[in-house]
Design a protein around this nucleic acid. Structure first.
Lengths: 156, 156
DNA sequence: CGATTCTGTAACTGCGGTGGTTACAGTTGT
DNA sequence: ACAACTGTAACCACCGCAGTTACAGAATCG
């Protein structure tokens, strides 16, 4: 599976874009500031997200990226597939010995096992949307609140 | 997730050991021959499988590895966890910007998302045992049968 | 218009993980 | 003693990734 942090970065970026949906485009420099990485990393990410139809980007002064789909419509498996290109589950690097009965048959079986495991993972991801992520971020924030005044509300 | 082929190797090795369960230990050289890799790779694998209690190994002449649990009792998620040591799903490599509302809250949410995805994957793996793998290998083998006598030509 | 602010992409680096390989000490059966 | 094993260290080469620099091109604004 994905051993990269691209998926985490992607969800992070999309979350920022969702919050700033009304404020126009967000430039890669700003996004990089929130993720704490390099603008080029963000742009590479945005290229993939754009190909997947999740964001639009605008060149030039005042440009940047904008979410092009409502957060409720963006399931996380779509983000996952947009970001992680190839097969994530690993196969035999070289063909096993076909003269061994196990070597001859194992690949086909493992293919099927890997596919179902991969599918289960994506199905689980599909159960959450970007809107869910935003909602989860709002409740029970980690530590100090900006204005912990309205603390009483949390109980509901 | 796992970007290695260790899991494939491990299932392959266990399948061979399951088939040769009665014939005593199988040495790493033989196993390497079937997987088509180096004996040391197999031994490194066997070390982990032994720690997980799935196999026993015997040093010395005539030694080798033996399956120590019945194939029906070996679910693939156990193999997976025995082989893949750390967290497979990737996190933020460095802490996101805590001064950004998204950066401050996203990690906790992503942790939960990743954990559930990982769990879904392992649950799917747990639905299969090594015995299932062996059974799947027996049915509809890829091409030529050992004795395709009953089947008159490919036409049938 | 030209300056500025962006994107998009290429090119390169460094790092970490992995499979592969050699080597060798220790163990066990014959 | 000898041969056949395991277990493990040490090392290599490779690959993918995040990160970085650099630059061409596009859009906006004065």
């Amino acid at each position: 599976m994905a051993s990269s942090c691209r998926f985490a970065f992607a969800v992070h970026v999309l979350a920022v874009l969702a919050l700033k949906r009304e404020s126009g485009g967000v430039c890669s420099h700003m996004l990089a500031g929130s993720v704490n990485t390099n603008p080029v990393i963000i742009r590479r990410l945005l290229t993939r997200l754009r190909h997947a139809g999740l964001v639009t980007t605008q060149k030039g002064s005042g440009g940047g990226a904008t979410l092009s789909v409502a957060p409720e419509k963006i399931a996380l498996d779509v983000v996952y597939r947009a970001i992680e290109p190839g097969e994530s589950f690993a196969q035999h690097p070289h063909q096993p010995n076909q003269r061994c009965p196990v070597g001859a048959g194992i690949e086909r079986v493992l293919d099927e096992v890997f596919a179902s495991a991969q599918s289960a993972l994506e199905t689980e991801l599909s159960r959450r949307t970007l809107a869910d992520v935003l909602a989860a971020m709002d409740e029970v924030p980690p530590l100090r609140r900006k204005s912990p005044r309205a603390r009483s509300r949390k109980a509901a």
